[in-house]
Design a protein around this nucleic acid. Structure first.
Lengths: 322, 322
DNA sequence: CGCCGTTGATGAATCGTTTCATAAGTAAGA
DNA sequence: TCTTACTTATGAAACGATTCATCAACGGCG
């Protein structure tokens, strides 16, 4: 009935008496309006989709919080999904988002190949890429300068006198992983050293378990690097557990530096030097970019790429006691 | 068109030729079916709601993973929301779930008062309470035996000779917080000691920040307890950071024991003794209970309460070096 | 007394999918 | 050849909220 709809959505357009009568009926019947019917009528939902590669990573948890706050302010809900670094899961979730006619999507892509958001553009669902820089041609993005982050980490280690540095990071395709490594290499060149100062220790995933695995391989290297730079903090934590068990002292025998500066970096075995990556802010800015794209003109929108600056946070894991 | 629906949902009931024709049309038009229309027709969605008190807590992240796996196996999606320990946010999200006609809801209640799931029962949305024991009268639940957990922690500390033990935990209303404390008290009684062996250090939230705050108060106590039992690991991490900065040695000056055994307990400053709380299994079992309640008979379902056993994991934070 | 403007209530149409009853077409058996 | 059984395709109705055009009621004013 049209009047009920008015009571709920435009209470001022309806007389005091009718409103009271309708409200009473709603109470008695325990009526709860159906969001699917509203959505069907409206043609789009009141939700944003957020697809990250690892919900277990505190970095993404913080990013999600930033997104949720911004979305909440706009009266939108957020649905957080986990692609678990699997491209097929990523496609499945993006299709899900398309079927749900999400108002917009925030995506941390699994790899840098292709344009996984194409499923969304068919439905005119705007997409903002988070935590990965991409060109401005197709989508907006919010990321941090990963080359700079790698550079900061590299300079820090080189200044401390390290001459053989391991880099622990995931598959080459990930722009992020490449960029951090590139930053490290740039620092090496700055210092006038050769590129083989850097030893790669590849991993497939970016969690603590993979870190432990990498730790074992790292210990076996000969000559063993005196420092290790990890593509994220979880890897660093895993490495520290392993090398600690093997009797390798951090930072004396091995300096360790992580990336992201998650909450637990400060509390860990040896407080971890890390590159602070502003997670919540990335989430918040990305949501705001998305809202801006939604808001006024469907057309006449120019895609933006925001790049934030990372910051080195020095702790015990790279600084021997005086 | 009915035929299209058949092609998508019952491809075997339609001739090879028509199917190909329809599929081709779908490709060309870039058709994506509307989930809201499906839901409207079906009267219910294909989603489970999961409402936790802190998405930043790795314990709940693990619980969510368990839930997602089980739900995925049943072809259902999961929407994870964060009540942030706020009763009003909890009600808001439960109303949202009701409006979305969620297939079922998993709820970690903010406190033990009332029955927040009543909003759901009006819509016949089944609810399973996770990580909090409740009576079997109204809903199913999956929890761990928190009294036993507290007892294990208490025995461990008392056996090590501690005679003054701080308990750091949130508001009294939380059954969980009470139970863990009760377990501790039971251990104290077992040992033939008086109840004032236990000193309460109350906190409002269960995160690292509150832990740091509690740490400051703990240091100020006189006489200072020689051991502290925390209602969760995040509190313990916060406390360890604070007391470490203040020059208090763990475990020599202060033994610390946490609860949940999150991934980071093992990797932290001083590896943390904790009570293992099977997060992923709670999430999985709860989802399975929910699916069972959904499956066959809307009526004739008897609510179940599953209680899992916690397990003490001893690490350095309570064991001085030999 | 009649006309007009305003305010508030009503009901039909719509969104896109599924379901169900019916129709059309085909093959087999009497 | 006609009926029967069976397969496959078609079209209408329904889900529930919203929107919009229409309508009724009422007060003011000429």
């Amino acid at each position: 009935m049209g009047t009920v709809s008015n009571v709920l959505n435009r209470p001022d357009q309806v007389s005091e008496q009718t409103r009271a009568r309708v409200q009473a009926a709603i109470e008695i019947l325990g009526y709860v309006r159906s969001e699917s019917a509203r959505q069907l009528r409206a043609g789009r939902s009141r939700m944003l989709g957020l697809l990250v590669t690892d919900t277990g990573n505190p970095f993404f948890a913080a990013l999600a919080r930033g997104t949720e706050e911004a979305a909440d302010r706009a009266g939108l809900g957020v649905m957080v999904c986990n692609s678990a670094e699997s491209p097929s899961a990523e496609q499945a979730y993006l299709s899900l988002f398309a079927e749900q006619r999400m108002r917009g999507v925030l995506l941390a892509p699994v790899d840098s190949h292709g344009a996984p958001w194409h499923v969304l553009s068919r439905q005119n669902i705007p997409c903002v890429v988070v935590d990965r820089a991409v060109g401005e041609d197709e989508v907006c993005s919010v990321a941090a300068d990963d080359v700079l982050g790698g550079l900061l980490a590299g300079r820090h280690l080189l200044k401390a006198g390290h001459r053989r540095i391991a880099y622990v990071g995931g598959p080459e395709q990930l722009r992020q992983v490449r960029d951090r490594r590139d930053g490290l290499l740039r620092a090496v060149h700055e210092a006038g050293m050769s590129a083989d100062t850097v030893v790669d220790v590849p991993v497939h995933r970016h969690d603590v378990r993979s870190g432990r695995d990498a730790g074992h391989r790292l210990i076996g290297l000969s000559p063993r690097p005196s420092a290790v730079f990890c593509a994220n903090d979880l890897l660093a934590l895993g490495i520290m557990q392993t090398v600690f068990d093997a009797g390798v002292r951090v930072p004396d025998d091995l300096a360790v530096i992580g990336y992201d500066d998650i909450e637990f970096a400060e509390a860990c075995l040896i407080p971890l030097t890390s590159v602070r990556h502003p997670a919540a802010e990335i989430g918040r800015l990305a949501a705001e970019l998305l809202l801006k794209e939604l808001d006024p003109a469907p057309e006449g929108h120019r895609h933006e790429s925001i790049v934030l600056q990372p910051e080195l946070v020095v702790r015990r894991s790279t600084v021997p006691r005086a």
